[in-house]
Write a protein that binds this DNA or RNA. Structure first.
Lengths: 349, 349
DNA sequence: GGGGACGATGGCACCGCTGTCATTCCCCTT
DNA sequence: AAGGGGAATGACAGCGGTGCCATCGTCCCC
């Protein structure tokens, strides 16, 4: 009845099972060389005491923390969350835990902070999402610390770290083709935040599709947004104010597409009859707005799962230090979702 | 040049500074009783070696992990993310790290999983969000482990743990009053998922406002949704199909309000002239849909920050074991956002 | 001038586990 | 019968810090 009140340790288990702590450790870690009889006794003792190994002690002794970190820059909407859900799915199944850290990549002490996170916590591995994926300071710290990391949608593939992505350029290309196929020739474009990978790739895809169709890219139809609703409002205004205004607008993400739609509603346009709009990302928003938005779905969760798989795969081969070369670069399939925000352009008056 | 290649430890620092490791430890932990001279020498040594204390070792020895856990049930959209951002803000400032774990509260091994998370990782404290806030199994595990926790928007305040919330009943009351003041008398209501705290409180506020205004609650106007867009579509249909249909609809969250709006658009209603719609939560969606949605903003991030503050406040008083009694229950202010989805009802034909 | 009180520092056990190596026992070979 | 090899187990030294207590020198005060 009395019993020690503190949490049971491996020593208590060993004592109760009549074994050495090392043997208990073997059972806990599912190592070989334990007789079935002994195994059973120990498992019983574990159950009886409700023993749970202390991760801190374990990590200290084994130099493995079983911690995976997710470093991100902007807590950008549903994207970040989906990433986390994906990571969590895998972590759970493989006994890892997820630590999340936001890194203000603009701040002066990025270095200090990133270093503290990586080195103090002794993370086993790290997953990077934009815009930290391409931050040289962070990457160097990771390299120096010898912590394996996987980048989701990096600007540029590297030989030292794996990556996961979709072909954004191709997606933008296809989406633009869709508009062209409907008969649109004046297609406006709202870019995302400067220097973001996505911004560049999506824009490139748009340009290429136009060019391939023999349509010139008209700079008057290209606006610079920042991936936010607010940033896109003036862009939409300028585009729709033109005397020879575009019959379709490609916004670099759904949020900005929503701004275009709102602005069109303001002017009492009937959508999609008078204006086609497409977005990118398939955020929940896309399906809930009116009219439902034609957009591209990135399998974000699956991408995160793939990243986790790659990471955990490596970590499981203790002893090996380095990535296999060449390091894996996965490209997952995207989906073009044709909804009701696109239609043929209005007949020429 | 040669120097040890492994990460420097406190011993290296002590040696370099000509001090004992204990004194170095004092400096690292900002304890008192270190002479300025000694302090400076040690700080210099730390900088020179780029020393970073090993959290694992520190935790093991001190029985503090500096880890705060966020346990949640559904990764419900922007809400969860906002919570995390809030928590992160505080963790960062106080030297804590955030571990996130999803708990499938329907699964059979909730107990095992929750226990593993709490006990193995030796979390210093935990923040709970719906629907784990009220899971008796999880709560018991936390209590047993003696891990302090704060609940965000719990179903019921408890004497053993602090909570943070807004007055949802009051918010729903006010919002309903707004509709009444515009002249609406037939106000539809779409409830959230059964058993959720929010569902009950919001509905109660609605009923009370009606009653106080001398309007009877008509069960025909009350539909049961599940907080999702899809679940609300049939609800919206049924409400709008009625011969004497409501002139306004109160959806228990924005997502369901979006479904109502979409359904109204489908029928080519002009909003808000023919139908007023209100939601709850002020998700990003609310501002981006058309027309922009009148809704209630919960200061989610601030709530998370408050929760973290409460938790960290307690943790900083090491030695004290228990919450001060009575434990704090914070109620933050909400905001009613009047946008363009509400108007006076159409004049009686 | 003796006795505190207090500032400053160090010594050392110990937190709970894993890695390494030694040991024992058994069966199999030659 | 001796030797060899592998399965099963244990002893023990850390991993890198912190907590507690001892020590030492000063300054102060009656």
């Amino acid at each position: 009845m009395a019993g020690p009140d503190r949490k049971p340790t491996i020593i208590d288990v060993a004592r109760l099972a009549g074994a050495s702590i090392k043997t208990v450790s073997r059972v806990i870690n599912k190592e070989r060389y334990v007789s079935p009889d002994m195994q059973e006794r120990i498992e019983k003792a574990v159950a009886e005491l409700g023993y749970q190994p202390n991760m801190m002690a374990r990590s200290l002794a084994s130099e493995r923390s079983n911690l995976i970190g997710h470093l991100y820059g902007d807590a950008g909407g549903p994207y970040t969350l989906e990433i986390q859900v994906g990571l969590l799915n895998r972590c759970r199944d493989h006994g890892y835990h997820l630590m999340i850290e936001e890194i203000d990549y603009r701040s002066a002490n990025v270095e200090q902070r990133a270093s503290a996170i990586v080195n103090q916590m002794r993370l086993d591995g790290v997953v990077l999402t934009a815009p930290v994926t391409d931050n040289p300071v962070v990457l160097r710290i990771l390299e120096d610390a010898g912590v394996p990391y996987v980048r989701v949608t990096p600007q540029q593939e590297s030989e030292t770290s794996p990556s996961v992505r979709i072909d954004e350029r191709q997606a933008a290309y296809t989406l633009t083709q869709h508009l062209l196929a409907l008969g649109h020739r004046r297609i406006g474009f709202i870019k995302g935040k400067a220097n973001h990978t996505a911004t560049i790739l999506r824009y490139t895809g748009y340009c290429q599709a136009l060019t391939d169709a023999g349509v010139a890219v008209d700079p008057v139809l290209v606006e610079q947004g920042e991936f936010t609703y607010a940033s896109a409002v003036p862009c939409a205004r300028r585009l729709l104010d033109q005397h020879n205004r575009p019959t379709a607008i490609f916004a670099s993400n759904d949020e900005m597409a929503a701004a275009v739609v709102a602005e069109a509603h303001n002017r009492s346009f009937s959508l999609p009859a008078q204006l086609s709009v497409v977005g990118f990302d398939d955020t929940p928003l896309a399906e809930m707005m009116w009219p439902p938005l034609t957009t591209v779905r990135q399998p974000v969760r699956e991408m995160a799962e793939a990243a986790a798989d790659i990471l955990i795969g490596l970590l499981s081969q203790r002893g090996k230090v380095d990535w296999p070369k060449p390091v894996p670069h996965q490209v997952l399939a995207h989906t073009i979702l044709l909804r009701q925000s696109t239609a043929r352009p209005p007949a020429k008056g």
